[in-house]
Amino acid sequence: MRITVNGTDYPVPDDVRVSLLDMLRERSGLTGSKLGCNQGACGACTVLLDGERVLSCLTLAVQAAGREVRTIEGVAAAEGELHPLQQAFIDHDGFQCGYCTPGQICSALGMLEEFRRGDPSHVTADLAGGQARFSHEEIRERMSGNLCRCGAHNGIVAAILQFADAGAGE
């Protein structure tokens, strides 16, 4: 059994204690995903596992065996052109130091898919009313698992809104 990361297969670590994050960073040369709190409180390690955003620090690598992982390295087009969401983060100053950014972008991509399929959030008024209106308030709530200690949250929300409004679905 292998772990597929951004389309490339990697071996499952022999030591089952290795987290998915450590496997990516320390064994696979994929240092885009960041180690923040290492306890599920900050979101810096967010990756997409079979399309769902998860915390790679609390996921054992072995739990990803046979599944597909997408990290920030797999977001831009192969020829190096930025993904439109990455460009939107630049356009709106959605970061200062950039440490939380890979997690923010992976989280936002997962969030947009949750939104498209009609998942409600804590601030969605009508649980059964189909898709909630895509708003500043909805994005803030749905992105609350990703902290930014530089305080770029307003820029992050603006970048996600721009990307979503452009209809730039994947």
Binding site: T46, R53, V54, L55, S107, M111, P120, H122, L127, S144
Partner: peptide, 23 residues
């Protein structure tokens, strides 16, 4: 759940973060 037990949906959605709820 949303139609018959809205308090359960609301409780779940108020818990943790989206990443943690996915896991």
């Amino acid at each position: 759940i949303g139609a018959r037990y809205p308090m359960l949906s609301r409780a779940l959605l108020s818990g943790a973060s989206a990443q943690i709820r996915n896991m």
